[in-house]
């Protein structure tokens, strides 16, 4: 048996918020306490929805729009959806230019003192950041870009490229081991591999352009999603206990990992860390802790990592890339 609500598209109510407004919302909503492994940060999905204007499948339980509104044709709805997407695309590239960390401070000019102190502390060890569009894919896009960028900028360390290529090839084996159909993943894999193979002869500008191009950028995001999903599926015994009662890993992965626009949870971070043999450190910036220190949560691979950890900035519901000063000094980034 099934029911349905009044057939109204999600587009009517899709808000277009500027980053600043969205951030303010995130800040106002008491942030989740980070640190508990595998806990979904509270507010993640709500914040993500307000941040995200990209088209997503109607979510269950999502409030439907006013039923007495004029009914639009499918054609009009599509046009409207496209307009919203275009607006978002013009406002925020999928991956932005890197900016000085003072830009982050500016966002919180009118924010709480706790935030200002934390950013101040963060800027002792980190000097730049790079925004990833808040479309529900920000984690995957941020981590993929940071990884590619590392490989690109490490021209003095050619072995890094060799490691990266090896990790890519292994990721394909992982997808096969998880019994994904080659037909369904090979296009995403091919685009990701092609982008990686172009790195030694390409430029940082060209890499950024690639990540700002929908088809390339989304294919790479998709590949990273499938890798995370494949890792979880092939290590069910370790991760199934974290699922909701009655949910299978396949169901979880198809709904929360493989589908574009679905927010990541810590399980996906762990999976990618292990599958790609990279360390990730997440700086949690939230307003609810009294300490002025920013809380860093490290995720480490099982194997010896071939590059220093990639650093992400997490604010409830959103990930961006952070640049650590010491990494620059080492000539890594």
């Amino acid at each position: 048996m099934h029911e349905h609500q009044e057939p109204t598209p999600e587009t009517f109510s899709t808000p277009v918020l500027s980053t600043t407004t969205a951030t303010a919302t995130a800040v106002a909503a008491e942030a989740a306490v980070p640190g508990a492994m595998l806990a979904t940060p509270a507010n993640e999905s709500t914040t993500a929805q307000s941040l995200s204007t990209a088209s997503q499948e109607p979510r269950q339980g999502e409030p439907t729009a006013q039923s007495n509104e004029i009914q639009l044709t499918d054609e009009q709805i599509l046009t409207q959806m496209q307009a919203i997407k275009d607006e978002e695309a013009n406002a925020h590239p999928l991956v932005d230019n890197s900016v000085d960390l003072t830009e982050l401070e500016k966002e919180y000019e009118n924010g709480s003192q706790a935030f200002k102190n934390k950013i101040k502390n963060l800027s002792d060890t980190h000097d730049r950041m790079r925004r990833s569009r808040g479309d529900g894919n920000c984690f995957y896009r941020a981590i993929a870009f940071a990884w590619f960028e590392r490989v690109m900028l490490a021209k003095t360390k050619p072995e890094l490229y060799t490691h990266a290529i090896k990790a890519m090839e292994e990721s394909k084996d992982l997808l096969l081991a998880a019994e994904f159909e080659p037909l369904a993943f090979e296009d995403f894999y091919a685009v990701t591999l092609e982008t990686l193979e172009s790195v030694p002869t390409s430029t940082p500008e060209a890499l950024l352009t690639a990540f700002q191009t929908d088809e390339i950028s989304n294919s790479i995001v998709m590949h990273f999603r499938l890798v995370a999903s494949a890792y979880l599926k092939t290590h069910q015994e370790d991760y199934a206990p974290f699922l909701e009662f009655g949910q299978t890993m396949d169901e979880y992965c198809s709904m929360h990992v493989e589908a574009m626009g679905r927010e990541s949870e810590e399980m996906m971070l762990i999976a990618l860390t292990k599958a790609m043999h990279i360390g990730i450190e997440v700086a949690y910036l939230s307003g609810n802790q009294s300490a002025d220190e920013v809380n860093f949560l490290p995720f480490s691979p099982d194997t010896e990592p071939y590059m220093p950890p990639l650093v992400l900035l997490y604010r409830p519901g959103h990930y961006d890339i952070l640049y650590r000063k010491s990494h620059c000094l080492e000539g890594v980034v």
């Binding site: 048996m1 099934h2 029911e3 349905h4 609500q5 009044e6 057939p7 109204t8 598209p9 499948e57 109607p58 269950q60 999502e62 439907t64 009914q71 499918d74 709805i77």
Partner: peptide, 22 residues
């Protein structure tokens, strides 16, 4: 709920807010 649904549904089933029970 067939009779009711087909009166209100849009041409595109993706615009329906589905609930999957069984």
């Amino acid at each position: 709920d067939n009779a009711n649904y087909i009166k209100t549904a849009r041409a595109n089933p993706k615009h329906t807010a589905w609930a999957f029970h069984d």
